[in-house]
Write a protein that binds this DNA or RNA. Structure first.
Lengths: 180, 180
DNA sequence: CCTCCTATATATCAGATTGATATATTTATG
DNA sequence: CATAAATATATCAATCTGATATATAGGAGG
């Protein structure tokens, strides 16, 4: 099979515990999943159409509240498809850090320029860390009563730990480059 | 401008300190850059053609050793283009971890299945860690005499630190899930 | 009540990229 | 001497991104 499309599984995963519109799916991608997966409207809407065509989801028009939205629901076949995908071993974990790329090519620029890339990275990570720490404390309270969010908590903790390490590296890297 | 193509800059970066064939560029991507950037033949060869068309690189046929290869060299314009790109602030740093995706949707599967995804991830990271640790000790020796590889060393150390944290998280996550 | 801004909501498209595949030669291994 | 692995280039369908277009709802302030 070609390229093995993952977005359909991601969307089915999101639909597995609630009905959602394409817009709402995009919001989940930009908040909850942001720290390890992304998707654009240009892939979400066509994929939703695909899922309906393949009988893995159903589409339902909703005109209440005057705004008309298209709500998508997972079908039994969709649930089966999702479970099958979850059984298959992970194919690829990938990082695309433009920051590391610009640091790697550091010899083509001033040391001060490399340092500003590190500092920009550091600020960005510090900002996102705020969000993750807030998410963690909320989730810890919830999980105490109801453990269905334990996996969400695990991914947030993955983010917090790695971001903490990134910040450590930033300090060390700046210190190391100071002498050149 | 559309999508802002980065591969041309990555290739120019690699060409900035040596003449390379498309095949050699792919090898660099699969070893040195693997831990923070990737590229396929399907993008490398067309991009090389593009760079030549735009005057940022030159192509030269080499028939010595009987094998005929196409060697690419960066031009002065190419060097200027690379330096300009390095000045521009980083646009995007992105992670795509299928492992975290499958863990996030853990409620749709058995706990044991989530644990095997964590274990597979752990093994993969342990393997890659070996390579990174070897690269680090080699680079440390080299950098001692000649600091042009200091940036390479920094990216390797980024990898080692984060991989170390990943391994810690794996242990904690398995311990946390054990009770469910 | 009206204007303006933001959020909600869907959709499409050019350009970029992946993963697979095809082809051919050279070098190393048994 | 066969054959497996490495070197080397190239192309393509399927996919995804980032940008853009369109339209309405709700809230804030004048």
């Amino acid at each position: 099979m070609a390229t093995e499309k993952k977005l359909d599984c991601v969307i089915l995963g999101l639909l597995s515990h609630e009905e959602l519109t394409g817009y709402e799916i995009k919001k989940r991608m930009d908040t909850t999943l942001k720290y390890f997966w992304g998707a654009s409207y240009g892939s979400i809407y066509p994929t939703l159409g695909d899922l309906v065509n393949r009988g893995l989801a159903t589409k339902r028009e909703c005109t209440e509240n005057k705004r008309n939205k298209l709500l998508y629901t997972i079908t039994d076949d969709g649930r089966r498809y999702l479970k099958e995908w979850l059984k298959v071993p992970v194919e690829k974990d990938e990082i695309r850090y433009e920051t590391l790329l610009k640091i790697f090519f550091g010899n083509e620029q001033d040391v001060s320029q490399a340092i500003s890339h590190i500092e920009a990275f550091q600020e960005k990570i510090e900002m996102e860390m705020q969000y993750l720490l807030r998410a963690e404390s909320t989730l810890k309270e919830i999980v105490h009563d109801d453990n269905t969010h334990k996996y969400y908590l695990l991914t947030v903790q993955f983010g917090i730990k790695t971001y903490h390490t990134y910040l450590e590296w930033c300090e060390e890297a700046k210190e190391f480059l100071k002498d050149f």
